[in-house]
Simulated assay, not measured.
Amino acid sequence: MKPLDSDFSETHLPFFSVKSGEGREVCNDLYYWTNQIVNVCFYGVPGTEDWVLIDCGMPHSKERIMEAAEKRFGHAGKPKAIVLTHGHFDHVGSLEPLLEEWDVPVYAHELEIPYLNGERDYPKGDPTADGGLVSELSPFYPHHGIDVAGSVQKLPDNGDIPFMEGWKWIHTPGHTPGHVSFFREKDRILIAGDAFVTVKQESLYRVIVQKKEISGPPRYFTMDWEAAQESVGKIAALNPKSSVTGHGEVMAGVELERSLNMLAERFDELALPPNRRPH
């Protein structure tokens, strides 16, 4: 596994939310842990050796992720697999270093694999997407792909997620071409990735204090807004009862139902960058 010339080794982003380093249990077998400003999920009951890591956080976070996993499961064993919602730097920042420690398969949607095997880079961040500082700095964030070609494989065509019995992956493109979310029908829990988030990710202040509010996918990195809108509608139709998103706190119950429906119905107003809204 060879890193690209522009790897994450020199990437240090000094953004930390008040929740950084904290974890919260969504249910007995799903736990999310905040790595600076992004959430990493751990699937599996405490004490089990059959667990799965969902997304890999920020660059230079390998040790912290491994420590969080050991604290959650009570041992230093490796996961059965790593599953990715998508390949942006804040979701795969520590993937390559983790694979040096853990020889495990990595699963992603087939349309995301070109960004994970060294073939393609994402577009640069769009500083005009919103007036917030996070957006204005986004052209300087890493946007290159990575190369884990020896480990990555596509998610099964039948919608199953390896080592996550009862869960299905759902193609929710827009933020990236191969973005996926994960849904478990029996308790209607959703792992949304960045298909929508529960903090206004463009605002540094709101990111730092983790003000909970529904928002569309992070504007500065979203590639296809028409697809993003369709994905939010698809998720709202699932009527999830609880959702972990890539950024922000868990949202559940009536708050989630009302917020998701509002986002789907008023997507142009609430999610689109001002310069993309219809006049």
Rank of each mutant, 00 (worst) to 15 (best):
P123Y: 05
K212M: 11
S61A: 15
S203F: 09
S243E: 00
G193L: 03
L204V: 13
A76R: 15
V40I: 14
D187A: 08
G77M: 02
E49F: 04
E119S: 12
T128V: 12
G118P: 07
I208K: 12
H60F: 14
A149T: 12
F183K: 05
G145M: 07
T11D: 13
S243T: 09
H144T: 13
P3N: 11
Y141C: 07
E10P: 00
S181I: 02
K212Q: 15
W169P: 07
V199Y: 05
A149K: 15
L30H: 03
R266P: 01
I189D: 08
D194K: 06
E265I: 02
V180H: 05
V199M: 06
H279S: 13
G253Q: 01
D187T: 13
V83K: 08
L272A: 05
K168I: 00
I54M: 14
S242E: 02
L272W: 03
A68T: 08
F73N: 06
V38M: 10
W167H: 08
K2R: 14
G150T: 02
E226T: 14
G74M: 09
N275G: 06
F16W: 14
F16D: 14
P217L: 00
L263N: 07
N28M: 00
E265T: 12
G246M: 05
S259N: 11
E10A: 14
G253D: 00
R64Y: 09
N35S: 13
L238H: 03
I191W: 09
P177E: 13
L116Q: 04
I65E: 03
A271T: 05
T172V: 11
G93M: 12
P177V: 07
L260E: 01
R277E: 02
G132N: 05
W33R: 04
E269P: 01
Y43R: 11
K154Y: 00
R206N: 14
I214S: 04
S259P: 00
L263S: 04
T172C: 08
S215E: 12
D50S: 13
F8T: 11
I161C: 13
P273S: 06
F163S: 10
P59Y: 09
P46N: 10
V45N: 06
L256A: 01
D7V: 01
M164H: 07
F183G: 05
S94V: 05
A228I: 10
A108E: 02
E112D: 08
S138F: 09
Y43T: 00
G193R: 04
V26M: 13
E63C: 05
S242M: 10
F15V: 15
P156Y: 07
P240Y: 02
E25N: 13
D194L: 09
G74K: 09
T48V: 04
E119W: 07
A192W: 07
E112V: 03
R276Y: 09
A69T: 02
L256R: 03
M251H: 01
A236K: 10
P273W: 01
L155D: 02
E96Y: 13
P177D: 11
I189V: 15
G166A: 08
G87Q: 06
T176C: 10
W167N: 06
V209T: 15
W51G: 05
V250K: 07
K241D: 12
M66H: 09
S61N: 11
L272D: 04
E185Q: 15
M1K: 11
K212L: 10
K186Y: 07
H247Q: 08
G77Y: 01
G57R: 11
Y122N: 02
N117T: 14
N39T: 06
C41K: 00
E49L: 11
